[in-house]
Design a binder for these strands. Structure first.
Lengths: 293, 293
DNA sequence: CGCGAGCTTGATCGGAGTCAAGTGTGGTGG
DNA sequence: CCACCACACTTGACTCCGATCAAGCTCGCG
């Protein structure tokens, strides 16, 4: 299960990749790349030589860090996709989030010195590694880098809220809709198509992420397809009706009105509209709403 | 709904509060207090005079910041309890977390310049407010403060994972058990009793936090009482069987074995043991577990 | 080609959402 | 001090969604 195909490739600097396992790294270049990745200006690149920014490459399925492992570094995803997860005693794996390019990993370890969660690559991937000690004094060495990293941390926190948003939905189809929309947003932020993309994770991981059984993931996806909102082929997903999807995602209650009934009976286009309107115009007084402020 | 009882008291420096017990207090002392609260050493207190750390007091139910509000400051809870939440179009309120003494609030706003979530005081409370701009250059002015704040951010991230942990549980009683345990931990960290405490939030907020209906919160709490794990009187909670509670909280699947049946039939003590053992020793092969690494 | 993992589909049943009353409980004002 | 009200909380009944168990199916890979 946890095979390490080529252990010697797990940690190495970029120079090391090019020239051999023991090469010295031109850290400055890495630091500049990292700043660029994080979207900050690179006006201040002096003093980065001793930043010790290294690159680590991982194969699909490889572990970036284990749960409970001592935290040496923070990571910024350079390529590929990761899943963060924790494992229960009985082996149940709770997926806490998926991370892609420019996402920060491992920061939740800073406060305890060890990683509270594990992280694994879902495909061949690579990350920048920044030693925690370096991060702490980052502001003095490179304010722009510090600024960028701080932003990344904040973004991480925000993404965690998104996860809650997904799990908060009561109906399985709504969870799925929200998940697809979140993934779509991420794709857009990465400059890729927001309407056609490939899910990098298996159904089981999605299930854990959404808090449903993996059979339910299949059924929910199927439902969205039947309603003409999506087209799904394996892990390839295309959004056919963006507004309809968003309307569905807005539902906060279990019963998704008559959507399922009407849509299941009819077929495609006109049905889509009914889904849209039904999901959008639900003036139900929202008994569950608490405006206690 | 959003009444501001005394607008002039909402934001003030401690100096403004000079009428308080200790008389006039310069900002530097605020910074020192804040560092102390965050648990850092206060070896470097110079250069804190222009830190602009202010104190804001809130009444029960008052909003610290609204969803979408421009982010001026970060906040560290000095006293009281807060809830972070986002509001859906239909008025449904999703509670993202509860925060207490020394918790950091508002950091998820840094990456966008405005608060993605709202925050309200659940009781009379007060916070330290640190301007975002100050935070960015904090390391140069006060490394120890910077260190402490960074730790706080990391802790915030960790707490968000805890929330996922709560919502990930399938059975309602398990969610409740995990929630109670988390709250117990917080109480302990604050130096208060981990076995007896008062929930500061209403059932409805708990429900939103756990991702269940508020009626289910009542029923779940009741179930824990019936099983002899807890005693509940209004918002006062006492943990009667800590290990049993933890055993229950470990369940990852819907069916909590015969706990409910056996416990509902019998009464208290011996039942507790059966709950304990039943919850602990469940060697079921965990079909849902994915050890895909 | 065959194996295995991932994925889909079907059948069943129990838990929890929903609706609907009731029962405190705290705050306000007469 | 009590009446009153709004709100928080509890309890019951009913229905239905989704977890669970159980086969098949598909795809990728050795």
């Amino acid at each position: 299960m946890h095979e390490h195909h080529e252990p010697n490739t797990s940690v190495r600097t970029l120079r090391a990749v090019a020239c051999g396992p023991k090469g010295v790294t031109p850290d400055g270049d890495h630091a500049a790349d990292l700043i660029r990745l994080l979207g900050a200006s690179e006006t201040e690149l002096h003093g980065l030589d001793n930043m010790s920014v290294t690159v680590r490459r991982l194969r699909s399925g490889e572990i970036l860090y284990h749960e409970g492992a001592v935290a040496h570094s923070l990571y910024v995803v350079r390529a590929g996709t990761f899943k963060s997860f924790s494992t229960a005693e009985d082996g149940y794996e709770q997926v806490l989030g998926f991370s892609g390019r420019s996402d920060l990993l491992g920061f939740d370890a800073v406060c305890m010195g060890q990683h509270p969660t594990a992280c694994a690559a879902l495909e061949d991937a690579s990350v920048y590694a920044v030693p925690v000690s370096k991060f702490m004094t980052l502001d003095r060495q490179s304010p722009s880098m510090h600024r960028a990293m701080t932003m990344a941390v904040s973004r991480t926190l925000r993404q965690r809220s998104d996860l809650v948003d997904v799990m908060a939905a009561v109906a399985a189809e709504v969870r799925m809709a929200r998940f697809i929309l979140q993934w779509s947003n991420r794709m857009r932020e990465c400059g890729q198509s927001a309407l056609r993309f490939r899910l990098r994770m298996c159904r089981r991981d999605i299930a854990s992420h959404l808090g449903v059984a993996h059979e339910t993931v299949s059924r929910s996806l199927n439902a969205l397809v039947r309603w003409g909102l999506l087209s799904v082929a394996n892990r390839e997903v295309a959004i056919l009706n963006f507004d309809g999807l968003r309307a569905l995602a807005r539902n906060t209650r279990r019963h998704v009105d008559e959507i399922s009934g009407a849509a299941a009976a009819g077929s495609s286009e006109t049905v889509v509209n009914s889904v849209f309107s039904a999901a959008v115009s639900r003036p139900r007084p929202a008994a569950e709403a608490s405006a206690q402020g």
